[in-house]
Design a protein around this nucleic acid. Structure first.
Length: 376
DNA sequence: GGGGCCGGCTCCTTTACATCA
DNA sequence: CTTGATGTAAAGGAGCCGGCC
């Protein structure tokens, strides 16, 4: 289940933007060993308030305005920029691996997952399921590519960064578990089923991509979340898939990214809503108390604002003299609370302002003895 | 230059299948 | 073995855009 969670978190938020920023034709193929420098960028979702990501926000907004359900998102982002009430920083998910992926090593592609990235395409931790679609898709690749651009299917140059990767695919289906349900057998069954379906031509084929294929596509997606025809063909050739499969994978991957983005947006909005609700409740209470105070003791409200000070501990209004002692007594407590208004130096003296860090008034009669006033 | 047509692309929705608990 | 939940590959349609006539 941890893997599942990691997969969820691994879905990029805003990596589309990062990918767009670094988009170039198949750069990942040409310099796969240089990925590490880029992969440390991370990405920031479009909810940050007045940050450098604003441009990306606008991009996201524009993107999402094309769909019906994105008014909420736009409002969310705009609200997040205007209502600076959240106590949490903008959500930022770093979903790019911190370490380079050595594609030119003839090992199965195991990407670092210590930062929550899991390139496993499946939903469970069992990596042994599925079969290698290359077993029967290779012929289709030939057909498709011959149809589309007549590109030759010559293999990658020897010692290239991808040739060994491709070799890995070939041995993938021969690895794996013991017992009657090996991947090779699954591939066999799937292959025969696929050929059956090819014969009647009606049933759609559902193929599981191997984890290596998914990982490679994932890397590519980080480079650019959309594909040019050239890139598509190159990827298809590289992964021994049909171009249509690559295209569909990118479509679905973008959809997953967007879905995850929406979920995070919703979570953020939920927190904003809770914060604002609490703020509203507190202000209403404050207003009632001030009104009550005004009716019961008009003289109290005529005091200059600078003479009214709020005790940060009990949150009651005192005169400057009494509150000075109280503040000294409760500084430790106040600073321990990261949401406490006393972290704002302006909050110690009441200006009756309505700033976001305004003090809270729980007035008591100025004739009363302040509970935190040191006894003489 | 404006309009219609076409091809290609992306997005969205839905379906079908694989896998697991 | 069956079943429901979940993830995901794939299909189909709508909308947009650029090129062409």
């Amino acid at each position: 289940m941890q893997n599942k969670r990691e997969m969820e978190l691994g879905l990029s938020l805003g990596d589309a933007a990062a990918a767009a920023a670094t988009s170039k034709p198949l750069g990942f193929m040409e310099k796969s060993t240089q990925l590490s420098s880029k992969l440390t960028f991370g990405s920031c979702m479009g909810l940050s308030i007045h940050t450098l990501q604003e441009d990306e926000d606008h991009k996201l907004i524009d993107d999402h305005n094309s769909s019906d359900n994105t008014n909420t998102r736009t409002a969310a982002i705009q609200a997040s920029k205007t209502a600076d009430t959240s106590t949490d920083p903008p959500v930022q998910l770093d979903l790019l691996p911190n370490t380079p992926v050595p594609r030119n090593q003839n090992t199965s592609l195991t990407l670092p997952s210590d930062n929550g990235i899991n390139f496993e395409s499946g939903s469970s931790g069992n990596m042994s399921r599925g079969f290698d679609v290359n077993r029967f898709s290779a012929a289709m690749v030939h057909e498709d590519q011959a149809d589309q651009d007549g590109a030759t299917l010559s293999s990658s140059p020897p010692n290239s960064a991808t040739s060994s990767f491709q070799m890995d695919f070939c041995i993938y289906s021969s690895k794996g578990g013991s017992g009657s349900n090996t991947e090779a057998e699954q591939a066999e069954r799937a292959s025969s089923r696929a050929s059956d379906e090819d014969e009647n031509g009606s049933a759609r084929k559902k193929l599981r991509l191997s984890k290596e294929q998914s990982a490679f596509l994932e890397e590519s997606f980080k480079e650019h979340n959309t594909l040019t025809p050239k890139q598509k063909l190159a990827l298809a050739k590289e992964l021994n898939l049909r171009p249509r499969q690559v295209e569909v994978w990118f479509q679905n991957r973008r959809a997953r990214t967007k879905l995850k983005q929406t979920e995070v947006d919703c979570e953020y909005l939920k927190r904003c809503c809770e914060t604002l609700t609490e703020e509203n409740r507190r202000l209403n209470k404050e207003l009632q108390e001030l009104r009550a105070l005004k009716t019961s003791n008009p003289f109290y409200m005529q005091l200059p604002a600078t003479t009214l000070t709020m005790c940060p501990s009990c949150e009651r209004v005192a005169t400057a003299a009494t509150a000075a002692a109280a503040t000294n007594a409760t500084t430790t407590t106040a600073t321990a609370n990261n949401q406490n208004h006393t972290t704002d130096p302006t909050s110690k003296t009441t200006g009756l302002s309505l700033s976001s860090s305004r003090p809270r008034f729980y007035p008591f009669s100025h004739t009363q003895t302040h509970p935190h006033q040191p006894k003489a």
